[in-house]
Simulated assay, not measured.
Amino acid sequence: MNTVINWVIDTLNATAVSGFVMDNAYVFPFLEMMHFVGLCLLFGALIVVDLRVVGFAKAVPINRVEVFVRFALIGFAINLLSGALFVVGNSDRYLVNIAFWAKMGVIFVAGLNTAYFVRRIKPQMDSGIPSEELTKGAHVVAWLSLALWTSVIFLGRFIPYVEDL
């Protein structure tokens, strides 16, 4: 396994993208700022949607919070791009880091939760039914979403402080 990871690290380190990210004094800080902006869009939008699904702000029709889903998707796209550039640029830091792999695992589970939300819960929201009439599963999905994305934030903050696998 280590030989595969070492081969991937060596391959990524040899790319022009890696050099661009790591050798330019402005690129990595810019990516960090963009990652933070993406995080704010993603998590901020999810807080609005998930808390509305569980019953907060009942005066707001549940189908009106759908616009925030778009902001969450934009934030996720920004983080996906900036995060991929972090990994390519500094692969020997990330690909051997247990906090990074834990974060990727939690993001995968959050993605499955989101897929369930889109397939099962969003159609209920689109119909305009009140949050009290959403299925019990909708509340579980919303609370799980908040817990998973909070975990992603915490694990991301651990990456600089955790070493090799």
Rank of each mutant, 00 (worst) to 15 (best):
M1W: 11
T3P: 14
V4C: 04
I5D: 10
I9C: 06
T11R: 09
A14C: 08
A16I: 12
F20E: 07
V21Q: 13
V21W: 11
N24Q: 12
A25F: 14
F30R: 06
L31K: 06
E32Q: 14
M33N: 13
V48P: 01
V49Q: 02
D50G: 02
R52T: 01
V54I: 10
K58R: 11
R64T: 09
F68A: 03
G75C: 07
A77D: 08
A77M: 11
S82E: 11
S82V: 04
A84G: 12
G89M: 08
L95G: 10
N97Y: 06
N97V: 06
A99V: 09
A102C: 13
K103G: 08
K103D: 09
V106Y: 06
I107M: 11
F108N: 07
A110G: 10
T114G: 08
R120S: 13
I121D: 00
I121M: 00
I121V: 11
M125Y: 00
G128L: 01
S131P: 03
S131D: 03
E133V: 02
T135N: 06
W143K: 11
L146A: 03
W149L: 03
T150R: 04
S151M: 15
V152C: 10
F154R: 07
L155D: 09
R157S: 05
F158N: 12
I159C: 04
I159A: 05
V162T: 14
